[in-house]
Design a protein around this nucleic acid. Structure first.
Length: 429
RNA sequence: GUGGCCGUAGCUCAGCUGGUAGAGCACUGGAUUGUGGCUCCAGGUGUCGCGGGUUCGAACCCCGUCGGUCACCCCA
């Protein structure tokens, strides 16, 4: 019988690694809550039509990367990103009627049927946030600065912030026409893929890595010339806010991104290429001022971003070092087992992470195991201790040992541990 | 979807020009009666990814297949 395996591109995260995941998630949750964001949880499955309408029919995500399936008469899709669902929920619950500005954050798995490679999986995890009802550019700058700070806290080296402005819908349409007009006579010199894009999604030719496309695009008209006065002012203000905040960034006029809903502000944050390989984009985001209305809601401007957890974990130099346990109770001899279980329970009631060595065996082997577990304190319960109502308390770090009255043990152990700041609550953020 | 590389114990890998397999780590027990981390001793497992071919004989050569990985495309 062939053993069952995890689905390609969908990975287990074993407990040894989960510590780092939790650490990144905690830092993120703290960061966004300091900025007034509240968590929202939306379904992993949405109507297929939501993504087609929000992300765009001609995008790669919609054309070939969605996990879609039919169920009775519904076409459903595992979410490839979370903004569409958040906007759907925002509209569905009429949130704009209750509050002028809404700040939401989320974390969870996304699904895209791509060929897996480093930092890119079919089930992957994102943290992200959305602001509804603020047309910026102050909050645009706030978000970018917040993310720069977040990556700093995660000890991510080589951070690079790229910004661009796509303009509003009209400016984008004008530019699109001009670009098609410029490229059509040169179509023969484009890559096959870009020749196809010329019809459906010409803007994406701009950030192609193909040499032929880069050459063809070099002298092409640039987007900034097509921005209207409002777009320009928005972008200028964003830049001056970022300058005032001292957040380093660079303008990349070829930055386009693959989702159709963006308008005006667009940004991307990259980490060190040596670590991340081809998938060096850590965060992608931008403004989507017409998406809420496009999905049947009111005219509410919005901006958001998403960051890839796996990539943050590759890039971050933070280590997880929390101990699994504070104390271990060692029963010596079968007669001591139930007393050990009881003592362990009493310790837990003080908030001490504690386990009893339920496998038994010699004192030596139990001590070895306790040491391997990273326990600070070991409580020995043998024949003589049981007879006298005492416990032998051994501090593995301090190499000290002392016999004490059983009833006092939980308190004393707690004091010892908090003096060494080793309890659950003292873990790093 | 396309291409490169790889596939030997739980993990990291060794195995010379073909003679059916090893190390380190990890794990478990022990080094005189109840005391860890260091050291020493002992212990186990492999359908050598799978299937076929060549050969007296294949982990090693050939073909196929599956899996992994990296890159392209695109993205987080």
């Amino acid at each position: 019988m062939t053993p069952l395996r995890a689905v390609k591109g969908m990975n287990d995260v074993l407990p040894d690694e989960v510590g780092r995941w939790q650490r990144v998630e905690r830092v993120f949750a703290r960061t966004v809550s300091l900025h007034g964001f509240r968590e929202v949880r939306t379904p992993y499955v949405e109507p297929t039509a939501l993504f087609v309408r929000a992300i765009g029919e001609t995008t790669d995500v919609v054309e070939k990367e969605m996990y879609s399936f039919e169920h009775h008469d519904d076409s459903l899709t595992l979410r490839p990103e979370a903004t569409a669902g958040a906007v759907r929920a925002y509209v569905e619950h009429g949130v704009q009627a209750r509050e002028p500005v809404t700040r939401w954050w989320y974390a969870g798995p996304m699904f895209r049927a791509e060929r897996p490679q480093r930092g890119r999986y079919r089930q992957f995890y994102q943290v992200g946030a959305e602001i509804f009802g603020d047309e910026g550019p102050g909050c645009d700058a706030e978000l970018i600065d917040m993310l720069a700070g977040f990556l700093g806290e995660l000890a991510v080296p080589g951070v690079e912030v790229l910004v661009n402005s796509l303009g509003g819908a009209e400016a984008r349409a004008r530019y699109r026409d001009a670009l098609v007009e410029y490229l059509t006579p040169r179509a023969a010199s484009l890559s096959a893929e870009s020749q196809r894009r010329l019809q459906g999604n010409p803007l994406r030719i701009l950030d192609s890595k193909d040499e032929r496309d880069r050459t063809a695009v070099r002298e092409a008209p640039t987007l900034d010339a097509f921005l209207d006065a409002g777009d320009k002012e928005h972008f200028e203000k964003l830049r001056s806010h970022l300058d005032a905040l001292g957040t380093p960034y660079s303008v990349d006029t070829r930055l386009v991104r693959g989702l159709d809903y963006y308008s005006r502000t667009l940004f991307e944050i990259k980490g060190a290429h040596e670590k991340l390989g081809a998938g060096s984009t850590l965060v992608g985001g931008g403004r989507y001022d017409s998406l809420v209305a496009d999905l049947g809601g009111p005219k509410v401007p919005a901006i958001g971003f998403a960051a890839g957890l796996e990539r943050l974990l590759i890039a971050s130099e933070l280590q997880a070092t929390a101990r699994a346990t504070d104390a271990v109770v060692l029963p010596i001899g079968a007669a001591a087992m139930s007393s050990a279980l009881l003592l362990a329970r009493d310790l837990r009631r003080e908030g001490i992470r504690c386990e009893a060595d339920t496998r038994g065996g010699s004192l030596k082997s139990q001590l070895r195991r306790a040491n391997a577990l990273g326990a600070r304190v070991v409580l020995i319960l043998g024949e003589s201790e049981l007879a006298e109502g005492m416990v032998q308390v051994k501090d593995l770090d301090a190499h000290t040992e002392e016999r004490m009255v059983r009833a006092q043990v939980p308190r004393i152990v707690l004091d010892r541990l908090s003096a060494a700041s080793r309890t659950i609550d003292s873990e790093p953020p």
